[in-house]
Each structure stands twice: as structure tokens, then as C-alpha cells.
Nucleic acid binder design. Structure first.
Lengths: 242, 242
DNA sequence: GAGAGCCTAGCTGTATACAAGAATCTTTCA
DNA sequence: TGAAAGATTCTTGTATACAGCTAGGCTCTC
């Protein structure tokens, strides 16, 4: 709380509206009128409108030609593409970090994070909450490792689509078989990615990071074929048509 | 003019403000106040504010902690990163088109465009304006060739930073030595990229598209080292520090 | 009963009013 | 003379008013 709550209404609108969409409270394809939604969230049209603009940019809302918005309707293909793009961009961040060298303090932070993840996936003291926290840390650090603000920003952007984010399937853990084993494999990949970066092996780092993102696709496809009725437990999957 | 001019004020604000920034009429680092700029462009704060939000998203403006915006200050590195990202994303579009197959009508359109580009770079009837038009067409089609709206959108987005766009250095043609020869080489690359895609050679298509984007970097580095004082003739380069 | 046209209600885009915070300048006190 | 505090002005964030366009329904006519 270092700063005052500037744009308090805007932030509230953004968070609440995004949450409504992601959790499926607003049916995909439904038209949203600014006045009605402003009344529902108890704020004026001005900040709500800004929030809607932002959500259009995030891809959760679509503009209607005649004016106004509706909730975006996703196909499986869209999520697969979103995950693919995240893999590509994280791969680029990894490759550039390898080619250009790692910002020292971020490299140290990465070591610490990886050790924390090692502890979290240790079968003797498995700690799911710690894994979630440090996994997010890993992906955040990876995006910034090459020291390029632009790259970091675009990687973060690619993870904004909820189901494409590296943390998307953490909530649906009970749906994934051998979940603990799968986290262990993911952590093994984290280690290899960092190893490749520090060894200046750009191509390897890029390929590994892409493959790592593929985990999300595997989980997505598993949930949608095996537990389609439970899919709405994973944030963002409620939007997927069929 | 199929549709009415909805959001006329917003569009005007966006275009005029972007133009002011790109052409260096607003010094990098200068703070922009909404009221002053609204008065200058002769519209109200509401659409201007939306336009500023958009330009922040495009990276041309930066938010100030205390509220308000200032013109972004670019380093060479930022432009190099932006070009790198465009290459990566166009490469992904090319790879996915190769892997998944090409949407037939877009493939046909691409053939037509490539033939038009062949004619444009033919030394006997060299046509610069035609080249610019069809080059833009090529990049637009490439982004959409895999049939994924998401991929197309993100590729387009990566070209929004003016100096990173595939058309950035067309305006500065007189600065680039052997400009015609260089366009011929670019067209050769266009042909090879499409060839790889149609042959389903994903890795080759990706690598070629990345290398193609590198042309922009070469031009950028050439102009900045050889003609730094003329750099402002290329849209967007006026913003680069030093 | 169906279709077309008109009217009304509502929504969006834009302008503007208003309040609270930030910055700057001035004034006062040590 | 310098520093601190207060006041004034400017700026942003938010609310709201207004006008033009859209859409949907209702009525009238064939």
C-alpha cells in the first residue's frame, strides 16, 4: 500500500468484471450493456468502460460492430493457440537470456526459487501452496531474465488469457492423475531450462521452454476429454464452447 | 465507408496523438496533461483519455506513478527487441501455417501477392509504391495464413511499435544504399518463406521468417550509425535517445 | 395472418461538472 | 538567509448529462 488507491473504481471494475467472465457467471456470447453492468457493480460508466476496453484487449470481451461488447466465445483451438504463443514467448525470453547473458541478481533469485521448488516437490515434505507461489516466481523471473522490459512485458501479456497461464491448472489439481509426479516433472524441466540458459545454450533453452508450456496443453486436453463436465472448476475453461 | 464514423473523436485523437509522438513533435520524456492535449486537439478529455490509454498499451506513452503520462523514451535496444519479437511471432505464424496447413483462399491470395511483388522488384519496371502496398499485404497474409485469429492478432500487435514494423524503413529509402537490390533480396526471402510453408517445412519456415525480420534490424543499425542525424526521417526513430 | 413502416425506448459516444490529491509557490518564522 | 508549512492552482479520476443512432416492438394495412 505504498501508494494511495488511485483508480480504485477502475481497478474494482476490472477485477470484478474479469472474475465474472472467467468463472462463467456471464454466459459466453451474452451482450454486456455498460449501463446495466455499471449499475450491477455499483459504479459509474466511466471506469467500467475503461475496464471493458481493457478486457477487450485481453481477449475476454469482443466488440460488436454496432457498438457495445459481448463475452468472447472460445474454442479449444483458441486456448491451444494461446498456450502455443506463451511457449514461444517464454522460449524467446529463455533464448535471449542465454544469448545475451543473465542479469546477475535475477540469476541469483532464480537459484533461490529453484531450490524452493525442489523442496516443495520433495515427496517427504510436499507443499502444494509453496509450489504454486514459487512456480509463479519462476515464470516471472524467466520473463525478465534477459533484462529486456519489452520481452518481459510481452511474455506477461501472453499469460493473461486465463487458461493459458502457467498457473491455470493448479486449481484443478484433483482432476489431473499423478498430480504430484507431474509437478516433479515440471520442476525437472525448470532446472533444465535454467541450466541451458546459464550454459549459454540458446536453442536448447528455447526448445525446453516451449516444451514446458506444452504441459498446460496436455492438462487442458486431458481435462476436456476426461472430465468435460468438471472443466468449469479450472478458471477460464467455463468459457470454452461445448 | 460501410459503417458510420463511430468513435470519430476517439479515432481522431488516436491518430493525431500517435502522429505527434512518432514524428517527434512531442519531445521524449515530456509530460502530457490531458486538459492541455484535449484543448490542442480540440476535443474533450473523454476520447483523448481513451486514446492515451491505447498509446500506453502500444508503448509510445508511459504512465507516471503519480498519474498522467509522458512520452516514452526509447533506447536502441528496445527497438532491437521489438524487431526480434516481431521476427519470432511472424516465424511462429509461418511454422504453424506449415504444420497445420494453409487456409486455401489465403494461400491463393499469397500467390497473387507474391507475383505482384515479383513485378514490383523487376529492374525493368521497378515500382516502389506497388512494392510497399504488396509488402504490407504479404505480412498481413502471413500472419493469417495459419487460420488462427489469436496468432494473427499478436503478430499484428508486434508490428505496432512503429520502428519495428515491416514498413518502417520504406520511408527512409534514400538512406539505404542499394535500396532496390535490398528489396529484391527481401522478395527472394518472401518466396522462400512461402515455399517452406507449402512444403510443410515448419522449422525452415520459422527460421526464414525470423531472418527476414532481421532486415529491419540491419537497416536500423545502418541508419543509426551512418546517418544518425537523418534518423528522424524514419517514423518512430525520432524517439530514440541519443 | 403476415409484412412493412413508424415510433419509442434504450444504448453508446462525447462533453462537462466536480471533488480529492499533487505540485508549486509564497510567506513566515527561526 | 534558509527551511518548513500552508495555500493556491492544476490535474487526474469519477460521475453525470446529453444527443444521435439502433433496435425492437407495435400497429396498421393488405
Amino acid at each position: 500500500m505504498t501508494r494511495r488507491d488511485r483508480k480504485a473504481q477502475f481497478n474494482r471494475a476490472l477485477i470484478e468484471l474479469r472474475s465474472l467472465i472467467i468463472h462463467g457467471a456471464l454466459p459466453a456470447g451474452e451482450r454486456l450493456t455498460e449501463t446495466a453492468m455499471a449499475a450491477r457493480l455499483d459504479l459509474s460508466r466511466t471506469p467500467l468502460r475503461q475496464a471493458m476496453d481493457r478486457l477487450v484487449d485481453e481477449g475476454l470481451l469482443e466488440r460488436i460492430d454496432t457498438g457495445g461488447c459481448r463475452v468472447a466465445r472460445f474454442q479449444m483451438d483458441d486456448l491451444i493457440d494461446a498456450i502455443e504463443l506463451r511457449g514461444v514467448l517464454e522460449g524467446t525470453a529463455a533464448r535471449l537470456a542465454a544469448e545475451r547473458g543473465v542479469v546477475p541478481e535475477l540469476g541469483e533469485a532464480m537459484k533461490t526459487t529453484l531450490e524452493a521448488l525442489d523442496r516443495a516437490v520433495d515427496p517427504d515434505r510436499f507443499d502444494f501452496r509453496a509450489y504454486v507461489t514459487h512456480n509463479e516466481e519462476f515464470h516471472d523471473l524467466l520473463a525478465r531474465l534477459a533484462g529486456s522490459d519489452l520481452v518481459a512485458r510481452e511474455v506477461a501479456r501472453s499469460a493473461r488469457l486465463p487458461a493459458a497461464s502457467p498457473v491455470a491448472f493448479m486449481q484443478g489439481q484433483e482432476l489431473i492423475p499423478d498430480f504430484r509426479v507431474s509437478l516433479g516433472r515440471a520442476q525437472h524441466q525448470h532446472r533444465r531450462i535454467f541450466e541451458a540458459i546459464m550454459a549459454r545454450e540458446g536453442a536448447r533453452a528455447e526448445a525446453l521452454a516451449r516444451e514446458h508450456a506444452r504441459l498446460a496443453r496436455t492438462n487442458l486436453e486431458y481435462v476436456m476429454t476426461e472430465h468435460p463436465n468438471l472443466a468449469e472448476r479450472v478458471p477460464g475453461l467455463a468459457l470454452v464452447a461445448e
